[in-house]
Amino acid sequence: MKWLPKISLLAAMTTALACAPVAFATGAHAATTRYEVESAPATCAGLIESNHAGFSGSGFCNADNASGAAAQFTVTAPAAGAATIAIRYANGGTSDRPADVLVNGTVAHPGSAFDPTGAWTTWVTKTLTVSLNAGDNTIRLNPTTAAGLPNIDYLETGAPASATTTVWLAGDSTVAANSGGNIVGWGRELGAYLTGDATVVNSAIGGRSVQTWLYESAVTGTKNSAGECVLSSTAYAARWQAMLDASSGMKAGDHLFIQFGINDGSSTCPRHVGSARYRELLTTMVRAAQQRGAHPTLVTPVSALSCSGGTATPTRGFLTETFDVGRATGAPVIDLHKLSYTLYNSLRLCPFNGDYSSGPVGAFFADDHTHFEAAGARQIAGLVATAVRDQRLALSAYLR
């Protein structure tokens, strides 16, 4: 616990606090702007104190020891897009004090960890990447446990002038770079829509459900009493281990796009994944990204071409489950399923005579109704990029 009772040592000090944010030029980085928590319009659901040395400005926020006792900042962005925020805090307790980080009322980083710093006079900086609107934005630190927040000193905004990001892709053959022959996934084409500051690492692989992607050969052909495929080992496949690697894997400000659901509906193992297990595994991936300060984005499975008369119709499952995970974790969801069959209709790919080798269908799909040739994959990647911009996701700062 923090020292109780809370006695504000600022009572004898002047109440005329500086309200204007302060801009700092930091070497090779773009100018950052500091927002002191004791300066309006910032708010603190507790007391502004100065009894622990090392803080900046005239004090820090010692919020009430309660869930929801928040500190909130109003920050100004010159343009819409991704921005780095740095939160300076001290946690002299022995336990994490997690908080949801909300941007303009929407949870951007749920349950973000504010780990112990060793002493209330030991101040550290937690860095996250968020998506801001042009103009004023609210950033709220909302504690999720009865312990409340750590002591909050200030929040800085700004990004390095040469900020780079990595876009990690996890999915099946419709995302993979190449699954043999002329089959190309949209993940191979996504880089064409991004600036040179974004690097795509495509770890999607054909034929995988979310479980076989995560565990590969550890998924056996036997089902347990719950109807789920038995794992012979809980060790992750190398592709996921690489993303989780502390030194070379996902880092703060990176992006993880996850698209499964096409192979998961198989009735037999190893591909089979039930609804509850699908939610569980997607949640595991989303949380892992969030814990590293990366931005996870869920993508519903891209539609195959199925025609009813002259209209392309929905073909995939696991849509509800994907949206459920998005709501539960705060991760955004791109409904590529709907976007894709809507695109097929705009291109008038239906009706057709079953020949996938000629005409507009032949230019879009490989020799089936599911996989794409390069031209089709490029258009599907364009749908993803457009959704990123339309939904104002953090990756939009890296779109061409």
Results as ranks from 00 to 15, higher is better:
4 L>K: 14
6 K>V: 09
7 I>P: 02
19 C>Y: 14
33 T>H: 13
34 R>A: 13
36 E>H: 13
40 A>L: 15
43 T>A: 07
54 G>A: 08
61 C>P: 01
62 N>V: 00
66 A>T: 06
75 V>L: 12
85 I>W: 03
88 R>T: 12
94 T>W: 11
95 S>T: 11
98 P>E: 07
99 A>M: 09
102 L>R: 14
103 V>M: 03
115 D>C: 01
124 V>A: 11
128 L>G: 12
131 S>W: 04
131 S>I: 02
135 G>R: 10
135 G>K: 11
142 N>P: 00
154 Y>L: 13
157 T>H: 09
159 A>Q: 05
165 T>G: 11
172 D>S: 12
178 N>F: 08
183 I>P: 00
188 R>L: 15
195 T>P: 08
197 D>P: 02
199 T>W: 05
202 N>D: 13
203 S>G: 08
207 G>T: 06
211 Q>V: 10
214 L>K: 07
220 T>Y: 04
223 K>H: 03
229 C>F: 01
234 T>F: 13
235 A>M: 03
239 R>V: 10
246 A>S: 15
247 S>C: 01
249 G>L: 06
250 M>R: 04
252 A>D: 05
254 D>Q: 02
271 R>M: 11
277 R>L: 12
300 T>E: 02
300 T>C: 10
309 G>D: 02
315 T>W: 05
315 T>Q: 07
323 F>K: 12
323 F>C: 01
325 V>M: 00
329 T>F: 03
329 T>A: 03
332 P>T: 03
338 K>L: 14
358 S>I: 13
358 S>G: 10
364 F>C: 09
367 D>R: 10
371 H>Q: 07
371 H>S: 10
380 I>E: 02
389 R>H: 12
390 D>Y: 11
393 L>Y: 09
397 A>G: 15
399 L>R: 05
